[in-house]
Structure formats: C-alpha cells, structure tokens
Design a binder for these strands. Structure first.
Lengths: 152, 152
DNA sequence: GGCTCGGGTTGGATTTTCAAACTTAAGGCG
DNA sequence: CGCCTTAAGTTTGAAAATCCAACCCGAGCC
C-alpha cells in the first residue's frame, strides 16, 4: 500500500492503511482467540488461502502479527499478535459492540467479562473517565499545509 | 455484498460487511466532522468519485447515512449520519487511538475533549467500568451448528 | 504405497478500483 | 448573450485485487 495517503492527514486513515484491507481484521480476531495456525485462521475467517497468506505477510511487515517457526522439516509456522496487534482488540471490541447492535438480528456470540456480566463496551476519555460524546470534541489539525476544505 | 458471511458467525464480520469496504469509514469520518457534501467528502477522503458514490449508496442502504435533498433543480443532496452512523464514532475513536500510537510517527490531529484535556480513549466494560483486558474474556458462541474448529 | 496434515503457491476468470473526462442544471459576471 | 463556476454525480478503459480450485512438498501414520 502506498505510504502517503490521499485526503486529510489522519491516523484513522493511517490505521486503515495497515489493517483495513479485506480479511485483515478477521485474521487478527482469530489470532486474538488463540488460533495461531494458517489452516484454522483460513477456515474460521472464510478467507481464500492466497489472500490470507498475503494479508498475514502484510500484517507481519506492519508489525501487527509475528510469524514463528514451530518446526523445521517441514517448516511450519504459527502466528501471534505483537503488542500493536493486541491493542487492536479495542478496535475489534468497538466493532463487535456496534455490529451486535446494528449489523445482526441477534448477537451470534457473547463475551463473558471477568466482572461477572456479559460484556458491553463504551469508549471513554482516559482523563475524565466519561464516555465520549460527539459534541464534546474539537479537532485540532496539526499538519501544516493541510488547509481545511469545507466546513468543520 | 453477500449476506451470509463465510467463516465464524460474528458481529465483527457482520459490521465489516457493512462498513469495511474501502473508503466507507473515511466517508463516515468526514460526515461526522460535519462535511455533508459529496465534493467535500471526496476531497477530504481522497476517494475516487465513482467509488465514493457507490459507498454512500451502500452506507445509505445499510442505514448508516441518510441522504437528504437540499435543492430541486438542480437536484442536490447532502449526507448525514443516522444513529447507527453516529455510533460508529466509537469505532473511529478506537481506530484513531490505535493509529496515533502504531500507524503514524506523530498524530496529525488531536481532539480536545470538553474535560479540558486532549482525548485519549480506552474501551471499558459498561457494567464494571474497568478497561477491558484480553485475558478477562470468555467467548460463548450462541449460533447452533457452528462447531468450533481449532482451539479457543 | 497411499492416506492425511500443514502451509502454503499457481493459474485463470471475475470484480474492484482507479483517474480523468464528461454530463446536467443552475447561478454569477460582464 | 457567452463563459466560468459549483455540485453531484456517470462514463470509460485500463490496472489491480479478489476468488476458487487445483497443485505442491515434506513428514508421519497405517
């Protein structure tokens, strides 16, 4: 993928540039479930094997997953999440919460949280602990040379 | 996009089926910034116009954005977020926080939060208020007929 | 010898994506 | 009037990504 993104300089765009390709986040989901092997990831995501191989290579060079050889002769590899990959869980959780509400009739699976309840997530501000609401944010663009086009 | 997804039944996959195509989330980002017009969204995302038109139609039929005519003769439309679209902000915030840390050298923009600090987000469990950690979750798959393949 | 397992690669058809040019319908300017 | 601009797309033709099925290779098993 190209490195200088078109449009507004934005870490959302930069993030999607790394993990926004088809199957990438589902591969991360499977690895986060502890499924480290190519075959299992392929079956559980439904991704074509060639695409999955390409994505895992891309995720590896993006620093999201690490590929570990667990056997010589024949060479066999498994995948695990780096710290960057592990922190993608927050994105997956937000997507899951949204998907449960807006993309499916009834949640196909539920996360039991250690607090004893089923998980329902919110995104909060670390400083004040409050859930983030749309009208409470003011964007400051720090990139010189980016002239805002259009309102807001 | 096809409606019966391959692989593990999962609301992350279902969510990505609706908003995971290229440019979709960036279009939502722009609309969430108050940029309602096609031209502005096209410039600020960098998306090709034909793709953007197709995405906005898809997002509309997914119930994420609404298209409103603001002029007859010539017909002109603008876009706004539905409640579903608005709630995608949680996903965008999680992606932004991740991207700021892992996808760019230095954040190209910052959100000032109404609490007085710059925004830094965390994903918490609504029940206990604690930040969600990977090892605290137990998946329960509710879909009958889905036999777990591979560990976890 | 022939089966399976694991982690891919290869080939060829199908879809998507892309950038640039074009369309349509006003409105403004001189 | 003629010409430029704004707005929201559509069209075109070529390039790139995706998909699926089949193949490969080296073990280990029966």
């Amino acid at each position: 993928m190209r490195d200088d993104l078109p449009g507004r300089p934005c870490s959302v765009a930069a993030a999607l540039n790394l993990v926004g390709e088809k199957w990438a986040l589902l591969a991360v989901r499977e690895i986060s479930f502890g499924n480290k092997r190519f075959d299992v990831i392929a079956r559980n995501t439904g991704a074509p094997r060639d695409r999955l191989a390409a994505r895992l290579r891309a995720l590896e060079s993006a620093g999201v997953v690490a590929r570990r050889q667990y056997s010589d002769h024949p060479p066999r590899y498994e995948y695990e999440l780096t710290q960057a990959g592990d922190e993608l869980r927050a994105v997956l959780l937000a997507l899951r919460t949204w998907g449960d509400k807006w993309a499916v009739d009834t949640p196909p699976s539920v996360f039991g949280h250690s607090c004893g309840h089923d998980l329902d997530t919110a995104v909060i501000c670390r400083h004040c602990g409050e859930e983030v609401r749309s009208d409470e944010l003011k964007v400051r663009v720090l990139t010189p040379g980016w002239t805002r086009r259009g309102p807001a």
